[in-house]
Structure formats: structure tokens, C-alpha cells
Amino acid sequence: MFIHCYHYGMEILWPKPGKYIVAVSGGVDSVVLLHRLAVRSSQFAVLPTDRLVRNNLESTNDQPNNEKSMKGEKRKIKNRYELIVAHVDHGWRTDSSDDERFVRELAQKYKLNYVSTKLTLPKKSEAAARAGRWEFLHDLRVKHDATAIITAHHADDIAETILINLQRGTGRSGLTSLKETLHIKRPLLNVTKNQIYEYCVAHNIEFVEDSTNKDNTYTRNAIRAKLGRAQNTSKKLQKIYSRMLTINAEIDELLGGIEKAVSDKQGARINVDRQAFSSLDQKIQHELLRFLVLRLNSDAELNTEQITRGADSINASLPSKITELGSRIELKHQKQISSIVRISTPRMEVLK
């Protein structure tokens, strides 16, 4: 269930009430998101400037004009959200501890629970950092029995992510990887970066600027810089994203029918009937394997080469052989069955 909230020109897609892990880096996007969530949660008082909330649950015609009506508004939104602020220090920058301290103090200000981690990665890899970050967030969600993880991805991120995933060769799923899932919510997907900055200025909100954001050796930064000079391209990609959501949903429905015929999900693994899989057309094999991997790990990003290697291994690998695909996924082969399994992640030091 989503609540469409128009606030300072921002269309926010609120998830239903519940317990959530909120990913906060300290940057402007996540800090603005946390401010909006904190205002609506039971742990933070309603701000006078935040009374102008418009959605299908709260009236916009009658603004409170006395203390009694304001108390009524507070009761109305009380206990909407229970928030746990989560911060990841990738350990790449000498000043990254400053970001951690900023987010921790922000959580204390809002009287929210806070957990952070510092990744210990084998090398300076964007993919490894992303894998470690998401593993930490998903583990927190399970540990705290939270409804979902909330991230601050916004409308401008859609175009960037499409181009990044096309470059990686992640296939059709990469065109809509920012879509919401059962355990990942993105309330700001209809909000632009400019709107986030406007909200930040209007509320005098402080945030930190990652010193690596200007470094174009990072893929996302380089693409962001190019998109900044081609706004029409960004808008067209956002339209493609909307169309692909519908198309991918239809394809996934068809794959769901095939899945029942060739595989069986058992806990943290999916067993694939090798003979039934081998009987499928090669393109369908590839789409089905990607579909099954995403069933295990909705954040997995396998490129075309990895998917091809995985499908080939199901078709031809000897029993007892293990094929590592990436994104913490491996295939364990037996004579009649190949099992898709999640594997361990980068070592992390958890801080509280």
C-alpha cells in the first residue's frame, strides 16, 4: 500500500505503517528522507511546517488552528513508523568516520535506534561495496524482524541506474532494478534531486558531502556528469523505465509458470531439474536463470556473461561441480539437480 503525499512539490510514496530499516549515508537524499520519515514516526514531534500534508488519509482542507486540534493531528500519525537508522562506512576515505558520527548524532536527535557497520573489503570495488552494503541491510531487516529496507533513491537515479546496468550487461531486469520489492521501499522515486535540495533549504537541514562524489573514476559519478549535460536523455530514460515495468511484469508472470515446471524453492536455495531446464530454448534458459536468481536475492546483478556461464553449467557440468556466478550466488550441481544457492559476503565490523 502506498500513500501519495504531495509536500513542497514532492510526490512521496509512503509504505504502509511498520518497522523499517532506513539506509542513511549522511548525504542530502538520505538526510531529507530521514527527516520526512522522522516527522511521521512516533519518536519525533510534529513540526508546524510539516502540517501541510496531502494524501488520501489526512485532510488538507481544515488546518489546525488551536492547540487541541494540533494534538489531534499528533495522535493521528502516532506509531505510523518504527525506524532503525542504518549507516555503512565503506572504509575508503580517511574522513568517512565523520560521516558515521554525523548520522549517529542525527539518529540521536530524532531519538531513533541506530546501527552502523564498517566494511573490510578485499579491494576497492564498487560491486563488492554494494554487495556488502546490501547484505548488511538485509541482515538487519531479518534480525529486527523489520517490514522492509527504505532507501533514498529518487527520480534522477533511475536514468543513472539504467545506463549503469546497460553498461554492465544486466539484461532487461537492469532497466527496472530500482523498482520496489517486498523488502525494499523507495518513497522518493517520484521526487527529483532539485526538489530534494529545495526541501533541504526550506527546512535548513544539514547534510554531508561525500568527497568522492566529484571523482569520475567511479562509474555512477561519470554517468551522472554526462546526464547532467543531457537532461532530455534523462527524461526519455525515465519514460522507458515506466514502460519496462509493465513489460517486465508480464514476462515475469510467464516465467513464473515455467518456474513451477522446472524448479523447486527450498528455503535459501532453488533446485532446478537439469533435464527440464536443458529442454528449454537457450534464450528462455537465460531469462529463467536470471528470474530464479532474483527470487533468491532481489538485489543481484548478473551480467550476460555470468548468466550464460550459469546456464551452460546447468546444461553440462559434472556432478559435485560448483559454479560461482557473482552477486553472492553459486550453482551446486548434482546428477539430476542444480541448486542455486546464496553464498557468504565481505567481512563486516558492526558498530552500535
Score class of each variant (00 low, 15 high):
R172Y: 11
R172F: 09
S173R: 08
S173N: 15
G174Y: 03
G174H: 05
L175G: 03
T176I: 14
T176M: 13
S177I: 04
L178P: 13
E180P: 10
T181V: 10
T181Q: 13
H183N: 14
I184D: 06
I184F: 10
K185M: 02
R186Y: 05
P187V: 07
L189D: 13
N190D: 13
N190H: 07
N190Q: 12
T192R: 15
T192W: 15
N194A: 01
Q195N: 06
I196E: 10
I196Q: 10
I196P: 11
I196T: 08
E198C: 12
Y199S: 14
Y199L: 15
Y199D: 15
A202L: 13
A202M: 07
H203Q: 14
H203L: 15
N204V: 00
E206F: 08
F207K: 05
V208P: 06
E209P: 04
E209W: 04
D210C: 08
D210K: 06
S211N: 04
N213D: 09
D215G: 07
D215Q: 06
D215Y: 09
N216Y: 01
T217E: 14
T217P: 10
T217Q: 13
T219Y: 06
T219P: 12
T219D: 10
T219F: 02
R220L: 00
R220S: 05
R220Q: 03
N221A: 01
N221H: 05
N221L: 02
N221Q: 02
I223Y: 03
I223F: 03
R224I: 02
A225I: 01
A225Q: 12
A225L: 11
K226A: 14
L227Y: 03
L227V: 03
L227R: 07
L227P: 13
G228D: 10
G228T: 00
R229L: 14
R229C: 02
A230H: 15
Q231I: 12
Q231G: 13
Q231D: 11
N232K: 14
N232F: 11
T233R: 13
T233N: 15
T233K: 11
S234P: 14
K236Q: 08
K236H: 05
Q238T: 02
K239H: 08
S242W: 04
S242V: 05
R243D: 07
R243E: 07
L245D: 03
T246A: 00
I247W: 06
I247E: 07
I247Y: 07
I247G: 02
A249Q: 09
A249S: 06
A249L: 07
A249T: 00
E250F: 00
E250Y: 00
I251N: 01
D252T: 00
D252R: 00
L254S: 05
G256R: 08
G256W: 09
G257H: 15
G257A: 12
I258H: 08
I258P: 09
I258Y: 15
E259R: 15
K260H: 12
A261C: 11
A261L: 10
K265L: 06
K265W: 05
G267W: 01
G267S: 01
G267T: 00
G267D: 07
R269W: 06
R269C: 04
R269F: 11
N271S: 10
N271W: 03
N271C: 11
N271T: 00
V272Y: 12
V272T: 12
D273G: 12
D273M: 09
R274I: 14
Q275D: 07
Q275T: 05
Q275C: 06
A276K: 15
F277C: 01
F277V: 00
F277G: 00
S278H: 12
